[in-house]
Design a protein around this nucleic acid. Structure first.
Length: 156
DNA sequence: GCCAACGTTGGC
DNA sequence: GCCAACGTTGGC
């Protein structure tokens, strides 16, 4: 049974266009245990991903991607030159895990957070809209996935 | 750029 | 084990 997720990325850092260009990208840099657990324990190959642009002029859903393969240790945690380096993590007991994400499609624009918020009532409980939530990897129900992708994207 | 909300760290 | 201080996230 397919599962669905929403994954945030700052487009200045890595956008849906970047994902289209590279095809498959290791989702490095997640340093939150809850998000890590979703990737390590719950994600399965083929799971759907809503690619969300955060910390940008019009935050919102910019595209669709999918999970590739099983989770494995995030190599950047062991790289002293990386901004994601974690000196407390040991190679024999990696602290941070990731999955690879593959480009599926770009939306014609962005489904703005503002638009999503307007659907709050019909969407029901959703992590993205939970007050104060900053989770960069969060589950989405099948109904929410369908609902969100039925919304009209706006020019970005 | 501001700042509220949140997670993590470390002294005690 | 508490909790103040700190750093980060991310909307606005």
């Amino acid at each position: 049974m397919p599962r669905y997720w929403l994954m945030k990325s700052e487009p200045d850092d890595f956008s849906i266009d970047d994902l289209e260009r590279v095809g498959v990208e290791p989702w490095t840099g997640v340093r939150n245990y809850q998000a890590r657990n979703f990737m390590r324990e719950a994600m399965r190959p083929g799971d759907g991903v809503l690619f969300y642009h955060s910390n940008t002029k019009v935050p919102g859903i910019a595209g669709v991607a999918e999970v590739v393969g099983e989770a494995y240790p995030d190599p950047t945690q062991f790289d002293p030159a990386s901004k994601y380096h974690d000196p407390k993590s040991r190679p024999d007991a990696p602290r941070w895990w990731l999955v690879d994400v593959r480009f599926v499609r770009r939306l014609r624009g962005v489904i703005p957070l503002e638009r999503i918020r307007a659907e709050a009532e019909r969407l029901g409980e959703i992590e993205l809209l939970r007050k104060g939530s900053r989770l960069s990897v969060a589950p989405v129900s099948a109904a929410q996935w369908k609902h969100l992708l039925s919304l009209e994207p706006e020019a970005r």
